[in-house]
Design a protein around this nucleic acid. Structure first.
Length: 593
RNA sequence: GCUCCAGUAGCUCAGGGGAUAGAGCAUUGGUUUCCUAAACCAAGUGCCGCAGGUUCGAAUCCUGCCUGGAGCGCCA
């Protein structure tokens, strides 16, 4: 992986200077014979949690292996050999081997100030190209997410994938990638047949026919609603239509519904890839043929490595031979059926065909957000791509763990899952969730945890917390800035020529910190495919911001005009910073709350 | 049985070799002449699931175990 060029943010510069000095000190100590010769490794500085440990800290313990010496002694030697620099005010070496650096930035003040002023100006005027990373420059990325079957509404489970995927897409864009958002639309296969038949039955019920509704049909109340609508619009005229008609009608409704739901949390896809197109173009069969040409396909009633009892079991079912993919040759625990004995492909074959198409489209990164229940499926698809002679390396799957909507049951003293309710008032769908909380709350809470930890979405708590939670904590930082700017404008205070050298340590710290942290959160999120880092970054910045807001007044009577202008400029930049962070999370930035 | 994920404060979760383990919610007390108190200041809260191991150092890495979840279909 190419290491990105680090931006010259002040916090980064400070850290870099100290690191360079430490390396020099080690080198000198080696030359003087105080340390043995060894290749000097990169030793990242630690940011101490406690102020008494200074601004930066060097853990000499990391060198103990190389130097084969007591870490404390190493640290003392390094400290002694440090080159003189006005940046370092004081150092101290403490057990078990930390050298703590207390920095004096006054000597570099003009450099840092100039740098910061430029950043502030860019942030305000240039819409954050400052924070655009270059790791994705000239590269194409794709994020495939949601991809829910068009057989029902977007559920809470889908919502998590939707939020994670969209945030990932936004972060990739922030990292410089050109990003395409894609929805793989599963509109082929048996499920759609069942959907059509389900709607048809519901429709006939609407016409007063007394019919059993099979348990393996779609039970959702929404199909009853759709049927009622059809009955209202068409009367009994559809009575003789077959399931195909109803399938199309249902699909159209579902498609529209899904998109409306996603739009309500500001999610839009660029591309809907229809599974049916793989059949129409014949790509499925070409894919199978290519796998066969490569020697990975065979016909059999059971897979080649089946145990005796498995064979007997299959024999009892009297299957005709099916078409198997020898995925075990690629490390799978068993082979997989590609075409069933009835001639219909399994879900897996179109999936392989789809992903081969995806790879041919030439993305440098193709992220795929899936529930963990697709773990095995995703593996098989990768084996399939290998069987086609393709390199699946661009594909990165983010597995999001299950999410349950839960609420506290006072009587039983435990959480219980919210029932799959059929009517409004519960939280099993995205629509209900948004209705009861807010789009911003949904986005924040779904994003603000690691994808691979299970999530119990406590609906009551999120509703209750709507007035006092990180969502509003972060947004309020933006609102406070916006408010100051409104008042300043009313008073005619103009900060365009502000003298930013009047800013205090708080404001300087915030700007430096924000640039560093946001950049780092984007880099980390993209590198690990874990977009939740940006949510914690946003929260941390708000936590730093609010106390500053309390202390650093702009329009109060005791603030001289020059100072007020400088501070106004600071808040103008802060406002832009929070807007950017909120935008990365897909949250709104309200001017008032 | 096998594979993957998780177990951290009363609750929901961050942290994922470094010093005294964090945040929000909940609990307790305080703060407002002037830019929104959805805020700020202060206080308490932990066998980091258990047991071994590696290491100068383990919540973090390794092994085993326990608990919860997901997967292991000629389902999608």
């Amino acid at each position: 992986m190419v290491k990105a060029q680090l931006p010259d943010f002040n916090a980064r510069i400070r850290q870099h200077i100290v690191e360079v000095h430490i390396k020099k000190a080690i080198k000198r100590a080696q030359d003087a014979g105080d340390l043995p010769k060894f290749e000097i490794p990169d030793i990242p500085m630690i940011q101490p949690r406690l102020k008494i440990h200074g601004d930066l800290s060097f853990p000499a313990m990391r060198l103990a292996k190389f130097a084969k010496q007591n870490p404390l002694d190493i640290a003392r030697v390094v400290e002694k050999m440090l080159p003189e620099t006005p940046l370092i005010k004081k150092t101290e070496t403490v057990p078990p081997g930390f050298t703590n650096f207390f920095l004096d930035t006054s000597h570099f003040k003009s450099v840092f100030d100039r740098n910061r002023e430029r950043r502030i100006h860019e942030i305000i005027s240039d819409d954050f190209s400052v924070l655009k990373l270059d790791i994705g420059a000239y590269k194409k990325a794709q994020v495939e997410f949601v991809s829910a079957n068009p057989s029902g509404p977007i559920t809470i489970g889908h919502t998590r994938g939707a939020v994670v995927g969209d945030a990932m897409a936004r972060l990739l864009e922030a990292a410089g990638y050109q990003v395409q958002r894609e929805y793989y639309y599963n509109n082929a296969g048996n499920q759609m047949v069942v959907l059509g038949k389900s709607l048809r039955l519901r429709y006939l019920q609407q016409l007063g026919e007394d019919l059993d509704f099979p348990a393996d049909y779609y039970q959702g109340e929404y199909l009853v609603d759709a049927a009622a609508q059809l009955a209202a619009e068409h009367g009994a005229s559809l009575r003789t239509r077959d399931w195909g008609y109803f399938k199309d009608a249902a699909e159209e409704r579902m498609f529209e519904w899904i998109n409306r739901s996603l739009a309500s949390i500001d999610i839009k896809h660029d591309e809907f890839f229809n599974e049916t197109s793989l059949f129409e173009s014949g790509r499925i069969w070409r894919t199978l043929a290519a796998m066969r040409d490569n020697g990975h396909i065979y016909e059999s009633a059971h897979w080649e490595g089946a145990e005796a009892d498995e064979v007997a079991d299959v024999a009892a079912k009297r299957y005709e031979p099916a078409t198997w993919f020898r995925s075990s040759a690629f490390g799978d625990e068993k082979d997989r059926v590609m075409v069933k004995s009835d001639g219909a492909p399994t879900y897996t074959l179109p999936d392989i065909a789809y992903h081969s198409d995806k790879l041919e489209r030439g993305f440098d990164i193709a992220v795929n957000v899936l529930g963990t229940d697709h773990f095995t499926q995703a593996q098989v698809v990768k084996y399939g791509l290998q069987a086609l002679g393709m390199d699946p390396a661009p594909i990165h799957v983010i597995f999001v763990q299950m999410v349950r909507a839960v609420r506290w049951n006072e009587a039983r003293g435990e959480y219980e899952a919210v029932k799959q309710s059929k009517r409004a008032g519960d939280f099993d769908t995205l629509d209900h969730l948004v209705e009861m909380t807010s789009a911003d709350a949904v986005r924040y809470h779904m994003l603000a945890r690691s994808p691979n930890s299970q999530l119990d979405f406590d609906v009551d708590q999120v509703v209750k917390q709507s007035n006092e939670n990180p969502v509003y904590y972060i947004q309020n930082a933006y609102v406070r800035c916006a408010s100051i700017l409104r008042h300043a404008e009313a008073r005619g205070l103009d900060d365009s020529n502000a003298n930013l050298s009047l800013l205090g340590d708080d404001e300087r710290f915030f700007i430096d910190k924000a640039l560093y942290e946001i950049y780092d959160a984007i880099r980390e999120s993209v590198a690990t495919f874990e977009p939740h880092h940006i949510a914690f970054c946003a929260d941390e910045l708000a936590e730093i911001f609010h106390p500053i807001y309390e202390r650093v007044r702009v329009l109060h009577s005791d603030v001289p005009e020059d100072l007020a202008k400088a501070r106004l400029r600071f808040y103008r930049a802060s406002k832009a910073i929070f807007r950017y962070v909120l935008q990365l999370m897909g949250m709104s930035a309200p001017e008032r709350m």
